[in-house]
Design a protein around this nucleic acid. Structure first.
Length: 447
RNA sequence: CGGGGCGUAGCGCAGUCUGGUAGCGCAUCUGCUUUGGGAGCAGAGGGUCGUUGGUUCGAAUCCAGCCGCCCCGACCA
């Protein structure tokens, strides 16, 4: 799981492109290709090169932290599943062509999992038999495959994609709501930590009904669906809301507050209600990208899969379940959609492949080399992820590449500055540059 | 799955209409010069023109099939 804390660009594999490959239409796809993060293998299927893979793992790490925090525990389930499981739930025949069906050497029907409700239900049911075995929450982060008719937008709508899926198990629907709320709260924090304003919007609950399904949407021009909301939602500081997930009342207060504002995707949008509830100057209609979806589905799978618990009274009841998805690979693209400028990507710090890019403007110059090596070592010692551009390239190339890959901070070390005892510290986001001593730069970044 | 488009060097493209055996920019390699925002000069390497078949003396170019990819729509994390 550990990411390398520091790399030298002269040893790294980061094939940046000056020109945009013609197949890429939207900005995140273009920038991911240009920054050497991914390579398309076939329609909707990508290899993740070192830079892209780092981002993916940073996103995973934030997700893991927030799942751990609410007592949700990680498992790993296979990508290939047996058709048997899916026949039990009845979905094998329902799923249609989106399911990639495979036959093994013994002619058994297998499939590349598009999701894992059946499997997790089966796993849980085998070992959990009593009301004492709940509540429980499990999650996994795994590659899934849905044979989309028309993959597009790079990793945002691939056929193969990396998902975090969590599942909750409870005795009663009321307990199920508590688990649902824990996930809801974790989602608020998780997106905020990634530097995103993800807005929870009521989603279709299907046959279950109720109010227990939300999509988490981030706003971006290239979003795939139209959304409407109250702009006050963008002002809520959700990361700093210190919510105790063991306090159901507090959780439902916070969620009640967040969901009290109007917010809807096009399937759920009610123009009359929107007009009535949202003051004119707060009406916000924009394009949105779905980066998460949480759903309480009760006994939809536990019933057919025969996942039952015994109550205190000795009665046998199907377990109440919910599932909670985050599109990890999609987020890599979605974050870029939300965070870029004309020069390239502008990574939020929590998911940036490296925090700092150290640029040596004159490789081979003894003073520049020494100053860079010293900073490189000290940044590592301070626990700062750093990429050192020690390539023998021209300044313009280095600046352009560094802006393109979007590391939050750049330290520029050149002969003039070194002679004067200063380096330049540049914020990728604001573009603000300042000259200061190497020690001062270090102190600023080590925080 | 309906509609449209594209496949020529690592990338971006021209050449296809009007058939005569492939070119430009960037990248790569060598040398010299240059060196704080994608350098200059000189030289070099690199393409069975997606694929199969057909027409023709001759096909990147015309015809047919197949494969791949992209865009719009319907559908989805």
């Amino acid at each position: 799981m550990r990411l390398s804390p520091a790399v030298r660009l002269s040893e790294y594999f980061m094939p940046t492109l000056r020109e945009t490959p013609s197949e890429a239409e939207i900005v995140s796809h273009r920038l991911m290709l240009r920054a050497g993060m991914i390579r398309q293998e076939s329609a909707g299927i990508y290899s993740w090169l070192p830079m892209g893979y780092r981002v993916l793992r940073k996103i995973e790490q934030v997700v893991r932290d927030e799942m751990d925090r609410i007592g949700c525990h990680e498992v790993l389930m296979p990508t290939i599943q047996s058709a048997e499981l899916w026949r039990k739930s009845g979905r094998y025949d329902d799923y249609g062509k989106e399911m990639l069906r495979i036959t093994d050497r013994h002619d058994r029907d297998m499939l590349f999992g598009p999701t894992n409700e059946e499997m997790i239900t089966d796993i849980f049911a085998e070992h959990a038999k009593s009301y004492k075995d709940v509540p429980r929450m499990l999650y996994h982060i795994q590659w899934k495959f849905r044979d989309e008719v028309r993959p597009r937008f790079g990793v945002m709508r691939g056929r193969e994609f990396l998902m975090k899926d969590a599942y909750s198990f409870d005795l009663t629907p009321e307990d199920g709501r508590i688990s649902y709320n824990k996930q809801f709260v974790a989602y608020l924090r998780l997106y905020a930590r990634m530097g995103l304003q993800a807005i929870p919007m009521a989603a279709d609950t299907g046959p279950i009904g109720g109010d227990m399904s939300h999509e988490f949407i981030i706003l971006a021009e290239t979003g795939e669906s139209q959304v409407w909301c109250n702009s006050d939602l963008l002002e809520l500081d959700l990361l700093n809301a210190d919510i105790d997930h063991r306090d159901p009342a507090q959780m439902s207060d916070v969620i009640g507050k967040v969901t009290s504002y109007y917010a809807a995707t096009d399937e759920q949008h009610d123009e009359a209600k929107y007009q009535a509830e949202v003051p004119e100057d707060k009406r916000l209609s924009a394009r949105g990208i779905e980066v998460g979806h949480i759903f309480f589905f009760g006994t939809k799978y536990s019933e057919p899969m025969n996942a039952k618990l015994q109550t205190k009274d000795g009665e046998s009841v199907p377990v109440q379940m919910g599932s909670y998805g985050v599109g990890v690979s999609r987020l890599a693209g979605a974050i870029i959609e939300a965070c870029h400028d004309d020069n390239g990507i502008v990574w939020p710090e929590a998911v940036a492949p490296f925090k700092v890019g150290l640029i040596n403007l004159r490789v081979g110059d003894a003073a520049c080399d020494a100053a860079c090596e010293d900073l490189f070592a000290k940044l590592q010692a301070a626990g700062v992820d750093v990429m050192y551009d020690d390539r023998d390239e021209r300044a313009g190339v280095k600046f352009a590449d560094m802006d393109l890959i979007g590391l939050p901070w750049q330290i520029v070390v050149g002969p003039k500055g070194v002679a004067a005892g200063v380096v330049e510290l540049k914020s990728r986001k604001t573009g603000v540059k300042e000259e200061l001593s190497p020690e001062a730069a270090l102190a600023r970044l080590a925080g």
